[in-house]
């Protein structure tokens, strides 16, 4: 088991990865699909605008990428700090 200091460094690294991922999560759904939709209405996608595409498809695709990215990044972090499962 890693030292006290190591484990708190591991945890703060995890928190900053989560923060980064959740910013992307927020922008892809609440941002592009709801709050920023009026600003993006000029960009057309198949008969409608980019905001509509994000609301019905884009956000879900971004969510998928995010979860797998997080899983991959954390597995790497676990190994770096020696806290992975044997």
């Amino acid at each position: 088991m890693a030292s006290q200091q190591d484990s708190s460094a591991y945890w703060s690294k995890n928190i900053s990865i989560i923060k980064g991922c959740l910013i992307v999560w927020f922008v892809a759904s609440f941002g592009m699909a709801i709050l920023l939709r009026p600003l993006l209405s000029g960009i057309g996608v198949g008969g409608t605008d980019l905001g509509f595409w994000f609301a019905q498809q884009g956000s879900i695709i971004v969510f998928l990428i995010l979860i797998f990215f997080y899983a991959w990044r954390m597995n790497k972090l676990d190994a770096e700090y020696g806290v992975d499962e044997e």
Binding site: C21, W25, A33, A55, Q56, S59, I60, F63, I67
Partner: peptide, 20 residues
């Protein structure tokens, strides 16, 4: 369009589950 909330809400929750 308004019902996109269901699509985003019922999938976006898994991001929270996976990370939090």
């Amino acid at each position: 369009y308004d019902t996109s909330a269901y699509l985003m809400g019922w999938t976006g929750g898994y991001v929270l589950l996976a990370m939090l």
